[in-house]
Design a protein around this nucleic acid. Structure first.
Lengths: 367, 367
DNA sequence: CTGTTAGCGCTTTCAT
DNA sequence: ATGAAAGCGCTAACAG
């Protein structure tokens, strides 16, 4: 018996099994199956399954033998087969606008790291910010029997997501997008308050003409940030000036263009508040190119606090989002959701302003 | 017949099907199956399958009816079931050291964008650069019947990967790691040459004491970059000085520490060459903190050319890697591999040096 | 052109 | 405690 496993155990297996199914398996792909182990151990396939899942008490002696054989054959359960009978596979989907944006990639990392510990895998999908792609992806994901989907900064509106989730039977968690009046679990940052704070910081340091570089306004967060900016102006008796608002797309290049536009104004701003760090980086770059000093001639504020911001020149004052935390919380919500079957409460995180050198601590005279 | 579909078609279905299996489906989850469509259309399940996969000619009238019913029931094939019979699912795995590193996230994006067009999904796994995790992940992936795995900058050595791929029966593609003398498809950048070039640029601009911030030396690329640096020194008759070599870990923080170390030397370098941009960012940050002017007092060179490098202050001279291209080529290799079943040839890309402002174009006097 | 049948590998009653 | 058997939803011969 022992010999059978040593060395070319495979040949023995081949000589021993003669049913066509087994023959095929042995020749084509040597992946071990429950059936092989069962046949080998002289027990039923059900018993093997029980042992390997220690689902019920099994004769210890048999269990030992089964486990040994499974190891020898380096058996790995076929998760697809298992998924078929269970009607689901231990996998989540992550749908993200742009994995190459450090903000999102950090969220993904957090999610991945958290769910991995519970044995879950993740499918990753990039939408490039295209709403039509989101639905497509969800359908694709559902066909694969995933258990839940993380919608990161989705373009689709929450109600639609809810409908789809009911129709297709998956758990959605919305990440980085405010969800109200809809029964959907979500985690997001209070952007309005954060941007009031950021704007007021600028106002406190003496600015009254503050340019605003928005992200795509079909994204709820962008609208909230804009709202915060507008509210702060209002609270401080500063009239809004639409020409100071520029809609970008969250990429470095659009920040560059925004700065170019804002500085071309007759009456240009003395400070620029950006909806994310990437665009702020673009702004800084334009200013450097033009030899405009930051913060002496113009102040710049970003949002996110991605890793590089502290290393820019000058180090960027920015709204620090709890990025990793957001991903981690989302993952935990999902896991709880799966386990208990009930909707975890939403989580609204706060974002601090991190004051660095791209804004002056005190500004007496502007321009 | 028509009426049956209108409005509460579901109730009709329920009233009509009484076999337990169908009863269960209808009540629990209203996912349509081939069987339901078949029963509904009054044809066999095989016919439905044929229609939906247009695998063989089917009576157009029947086809029409089947398709219509499928649409009404918003039928989506169960990919898991399909996977079970086919023995594989249209999915690849991506194994990456750190998805939060912009270099890697861009590669992932490229892969994802490319394979998506062929209907493939991707599982994403982060290893945090831990070799033991790689094997674990591969086994996990294999259980899920994926067709291929992209190993990005793997820590495991190629031979091991090859063995595993044979043992488990998946296609591996190595990305961003030199593979020689092993029958494995790979795409990588000629780092040695690139770093000879980078080092020589520094030498040409007058430097002879050049600090080198290496990445983890258990990564082949790091060793190659170091090798390029060393070769360039040798070619130019500069004796190597081990104290000028610092081993980091590719993160911003280690660049900071490296600079701290190098500048603390009795005879500090006049230029610092880094194995990636992130570490160069850390270096720049340290230099800013200490008020050391770049490039006047010290030159800095990075590697990768991630998006932010052009926006740093000063804009970073760096070895520009064809990042997106590398991911795209890898994806195409995989697709071809799957289709033809044979090993596509390796692809060795070249990296240009992009000279920006962190190195002086001409340096007459150093220090 | 269409239906019947036999699985894919695994879990899970239901008997024994 | 163990085995037999019935599927999970789909594909792919094999017959008509």
């Amino acid at each position: 018996m022992a010999k059978r496993f040593s060395g070319e155990w495979w040949e023995n297996v081949y000589q021993e099994f003669h049913e066509p199914a087994l023959r095929r398996e042995t020749l084509a792909k040597k992946r071990a199956t429950l059936r092989m182990i069962a046949e080998y151990a002289g027990v039923s396939i059900a018993t093997v399954s029980r042992v390997l899942n220690n689902s019920r008490r099994v004769n210890p002696e048999i269990a030992r033998r089964v486990i040994e054989i499974a190891n020898r054959l380096s058996y790995r359960p076929n998760e697809v087969a298992r998924g078929l009978v269970k009607g689901k596979i231990k996998t989540f989907g992550i749908v993200v606008p742009d994995i190459d944006n450090p903000f999102f990639s950090k969220i993904c990392k957090a999610i991945q790291n958290t769910v991995r510990k519970e044995g879950y895998s993740v499918f990753l999908y990039n939408t490039d910010g295209k709403p039509e792609r989101e639905k497509e992806i969800i359908e694709n994901l559902v066909q694969r029997l995933i258990e839940g989907i993380f919608m990161i900064a989705p373009r689709m509106n929450p109600k639609e997501i809810l409908e789809l989730s009911k129709e297709y039977g998956f758990y959605p968690i919305i990440v980085d997008s405010r969800v109200e009046n809809v029964m959907l679990s979500a985690v997001w940052v209070d952007n309005v308050t954060a941007f009031i704070r950021a704007t007021e910081h600028l106002i406190e340091t003496g600015h009254r003409r503050i340019g605003f570089v928005a992200g795509s306004l079909n994204v709820a967060n962008s609208r909230d940030r804009l709202k915060g900016y507008l509210l702060a102006l209002e609270n401080n008796g500063i009239e809004k000036d639409d020409s100071l608002i520029y809609e970008g797309d969250f990429m470095i290049s659009s920040g560059y263009k925004a700065a170019e536009y804002l500085l071309s104004l007759e009456n240009p701003p003395t400070a620029i508040l950006c909806s994310n760090d990437l665009m702020a980086i673009g702004v800084l770059r334009y200013l450097h190119d033009k030899g405009i000093k930051v913060p002496e001639q113009i102040s710049v504020v970003g949002c996110d606090d991605i890793d590089v911001t502290a290393s820019l020149y000058p180090p960027l004052t920015t709204v620090k989002q709890p990025i990793y935390e957001m991903g981690e919380i989302a993952a935990k919500m999902m896991l709880k959701y799966i386990k208990t079957g009930k909707l975890p409460p939403n989580s609204i995180l706060h974002a601090d302003l991190v004051i660095r050198d791209s804004t002056a601590p005190k500004l007496s005279e502007v321009r």
